Amino acid sequence: MAQAVEDWYKQMPIITRSYVTAAVVTTIGCSLDIISPSNLYLNPKLVMKNYEFWRLVTNFLYFRKMGKFPSGC
């Protein structure tokens, strides 16, 4: 099973693989409180005034903290 996942991951195009890896790392980092979600959201004022250019990219990488399914699932 692990070999199948590794093969699937290695067969992805490099851009897709990079995006999936960055999204998983960002989501896990937020779930473990290593990264704060408030540092990831897109705020145009902070981008222009404080030069926080990472916000242009990171808002596409974070989905939500991992945890229990919402009620109703």
Rank of each mutant, 00 (worst) to 15 (best):
G72I: 11
T27Y: 00
M1H: 02
W8A: 15
C73I: 14
T58C: 03
I15E: 13
Y51A: 15
G29P: 05
L42W: 07
N43I: 04
N59M: 00
P13Y: 04
T21K: 11
F69L: 14
T21C: 08
Y9E: 12
Y62F: 15
F63D: 06
I35P: 04
I28K: 08
L40H: 06
M48K: 10
T58G: 03
I35H: 02
L56G: 06
Y41F: 11
V5S: 02
K49T: 12
T26Q: 07
K10N: 15
L42H: 09
L32Q: 07
L46G: 00
M12T: 10
L46I: 01
S18E: 04
Q3I: 05
G29R: 07
D33G: 08
K45G: 01
I15V: 14
A23S: 15
E52S: 04
K10H: 13
T58L: 00
M1N: 03
W8S: 11
Q11L: 14
I28V: 15
L42M: 07
L40Y: 03
M1S: 08
I34D: 00
L56C: 12
K45T: 08
Y9A: 14
A23R: 15
Y62D: 00
N59F: 11
L56V: 11
G72L: 12
L40F: 06
R64E: 14
G29A: 15
E6S: 06
P37Y: 06
P13A: 11
Q3G: 02
Y62R: 00
K68Q: 13
A4Q: 07
M48N: 05
A22P: 02
C30N: 08
T16N: 06
P44A: 05
V5W: 01
F53I: 15
W8M: 09
I28G: 02
W54Y: 10
Q3T: 06
N39W: 08
N39I: 03
M48Y: 05
F60W: 02
S18W: 07
A2E: 07
K68Y: 07
Y9Q: 09
L42A: 04
K65I: 12
N39M: 06
Y41D: 13
E52D: 08
M1W: 00
S36Y: 07
A23P: 07
K10Y: 13
R55P: 02
P70A: 13
W8Q: 01
Y51I: 13
K45Y: 05
R17D: 00
P44F: 05
F69H: 10
S38D: 15
S36T: 09
P13N: 14
Y62G: 05
N59E: 03
T26G: 09
T27I: 09
V5G: 02
R64D: 15
Y9H: 12
I15A: 13
L46N: 01
S71C: 05
S31A: 06
S36C: 12
M66I: 15
C73P: 00
P44L: 11
K49F: 09
A2D: 10
L40A: 06
S31I: 03
M12E: 13
I35T: 10
D7N: 12
E52P: 04
V20Q: 06
